[in-house]
Amino acid sequence: MSSQVPIATGRSSTGIPTGKLAVWWVIASEIVIFGGLIACYLLYRFRFDHWSGFAGKTDTLAGAFNTLVLLTSSLFVVLAHQAAQRKDTKDAFKYLWLTIGGGFIFLIVKAYEYTSKILHGYTFTTDNFWSFYYTATGLHGFHVVAGMVIMAIISFDVRKGNNLHRVENIGIYWHFVDLVWIFLFPLLYIAK
């Protein structure tokens, strides 16, 4: 009984499906979390000139490559959504896993970046710049991992033809994760 979906979930007084509405509210709450972190970073950034020197030490090329990877994976998730809309479960499954693959490449590059930074002596506690660098990219990476896990769970459901609307919901979330990176990349890598 408790596993049964309540009637409330199927209602839609606003006309927007409930799942999609909830994803938007999740994103709203995430925006203020990342917004708070980025605002703190900027407050310090304007105060300390020596941070631009540290920003020069970040791997802009790896960051740019990762931006490209995330944007491509966002394209895949759009294709997955289109496939789900035409009820092509096989294609949707394929594109979801391509998106997850994009996430994997992103994380591998991230791991390489972290390793080389730590080997160069820029650890978590070297300076507040690096604390922000690891905290912000780490929190973003955590969201990437979460998105990948949810997508993997959804993908098997989708292959069976169930809950196809969830492809769009995870897609919205994935775009958001992408968007956060679009903010982090110039702030941590490019601006010197």
């Binding site: 709450s29 203020v32 708070g36 605002a39």
Partner: peptide, 17 residues
Amino acid sequence: FMASVGPLMAGAIMLLF
């Protein structure tokens, strides 16, 4: 609550670190 707690969430992570 949702609109105000975000920055403190970030702050709590920073404080915990």
